[in-house]
């Protein structure tokens, strides 16, 4: 019951948090900013609209948003928000989840290529490239998690007495992983400094340019999918910072969403004080995250010996 509730809450609040980022950015710019619920309004507006399809597109283009949204929702099904056991879990589910999200990326990319637009092709190529690097970084982190706690599932990482935390032996290494994961979060969810969601020039975009031709409910599905994906990564970071499982479920949830909000504030601050990297520096950026994770893994060997 708790699990269903926590999943439902996550689905409900996913569009809330990006509003926080906008607020933080507005604060830094000295503006009032859009209302906190802006993303809900956007979703409702998009769902009411009709469709426009390019004559170049085929069935693949329509499948894209569906698969993207479905894969993002699937990731949330397995996540133990605030240490509350998730709806589903099994040994090895993280591998499945990251591959399922890979399927989402696959369809996102081919849907973009389906439009025959040179700009969308460019965005697709970047997405595919940076995705491969981010995946390597994530799997390196999974190696560390397995060595710390012998588990291969999100529920195993974050629930129960064996949960990963900074107080465990070799827990200090989590610091490296948190930084690395935050960097991957920014890259995978197309935030500054990898991609600028607020830019106006198609040549410099990654994610936004791929969805240029989607419209109406299709666009709503993609947007909702990306909110869910961002929530997934932000929750991951929050749970690594502090495991909340020792509190009661209600308090844990409250504290957990507070921590998630802090992660979003951190994203907002990053976006406000940093500029987007030059495209040829992005691989270096993601590689840094991979190296951090690899450092942590090697150090875990040194410490445990």
């Amino acid at each position: 019951m708790e699990s269903i509730l926590s999943f439902g809450v996550a689905l409900l609040v996913a569009p809330l948090f990006p509003g926080i980022i906008l607020k933080v950015k507005a604060f830094f710019a000295g503006k009032k900013g859009p209302p906190l619920l802006i993303k809900y309004y956007t979703l409702v507006k998009l769902l009411r609209k009709g469709f426009v399809y390019s004559t170049s597109t085929s069935l693949v283009f329509r499948m894209g948003p569906i698969v993207v949204c479905a894969t993002a929702l699937m990731a949330l099904l397995f996540f133990p928000f605030g240490g509350v056991a998730p709806l589903l879990f099994f040994q090895g589910d993280v591998i499945v989840l990251f591959y399922v999200m890979g399927l989402g990326r696959f369809f996102m990319v081919i849907a973009a290529l389906d439009t025959a637009s040179p700009f969308e092709g460019m965005g697709a190529a970047r997405e595919a490239f940076f995705g491969t690097l981010a995946e390597a970084s994530i799997f390196t982190m999974l190696i560390l998690f397995y060595r710390m706690n012998g588990s291969l599932s999100l529920a195993g990482y974050f629930t129960g007495p064996e949960a990963i935390s900074q107080t465990a032996p070799a827990g200090a290494l989590l610091l490296l992983v948190i930084v690395a994961l935050f960097m991957v979060l920014l890259a995978e969810n197309s935030r500054v400094p990898v991609d600028d969601p607020a830019t106006h020039l198609e040549l410099t975009m990654i994610h936004e340019v791929m969805i240029l031709d989607h419209s109406g409910p299709d666009l709503a599905l993609i947007e909702y999918g990306s909110f869910c994906k961002l929530l997934f990564y932000a929750s991951f970071v929050a749970m690594l910072i502090y495991p909340f499982h020792q509190f009661g479920p209600v308090l844990a949830m409250a504290l957990f969403y507070g921590a998630v909000a802090l992660v979003y504030v951190a994203i907002g601050i990053t976006e406000s004080i940093m500029a987007r990297l030059k495209m040829n520096l992005v691989p270096k950026y993601i590689l840094t995250s991979f190296t951090l994770a690899f450092f942590a893994v090697i150090l875990s060997m040194g410490i445990s010996q």
């Binding site: 107080t167 827990g171 200090a172 610091l175 490296l176 190296t291 450092f295 150090l299 410490i303």
Partner: peptide
């Protein structure tokens, strides 16, 4: 208890990287 020494060392490594 978080091991402070390790944390500091990890930050040093982070800075090296």
């Amino acid at each position: 208890m978080i091991n402070m020494t390790n944390t500091i060392l990890v930050i040093i490594l982070l800075s090296v990287l």
